[in-house]
Amino acid sequence: MLSADKNRIALLASYALALHGLETLIPAPLPWMRPGFSNIITLITLFFYGIKPALTVTLIRILLGSLFLGTFLGPGFFLSLSGGLAGTVSMWMAAALFPRLFSPLGISLIGAYFHNMAQLFIAYFLFVRRIEAILVVLPFLVVAGTLTGACNGYAAKYLIQGIQAAQQGKRAGGLEG
């Protein structure tokens, strides 16, 4: 990997971290229901650099984000970690298994659903252990997945198109950090 790429991945991770911190300031109907804006950055990283950098960006975001917000190793941390990993891996799988089928919108929806389902799964095994409690929460997570998946997907699509336009404009190679 070129050092320029490393710099860009570090930069993308810090963008994701900033969005991760920013969205905690937004009032949500339920505290664990968050828009997941940092997934826009994961998606962009996946689009331009592939699965390894995307996982790196996700892990940096979750680890540092939880340290900054004081949720490291708390229940929220494990939910965040499982959701983040499942979301990233599922988006990569969708792109690899069905090449050229989806745009960032479809990939983002898949990522959002897998993110939420992984969190629910972990919540069941680590904390709740009652299927009724899980069933009550499930519809809310489905709605949240649709909303956040679609919004983040559109945002990622326009950002990717903007970056590509900027890259073509520069010819010499790539967006400058």
Partner: peptide, 10 residues
């Protein structure tokens, strides 16, 4: 491979 534009599958 991810398409840049919205597809029918999306």
């Amino acid at each position: 491979m991810i398409r840049p534009n919205i597809t029918r599958a999306d």
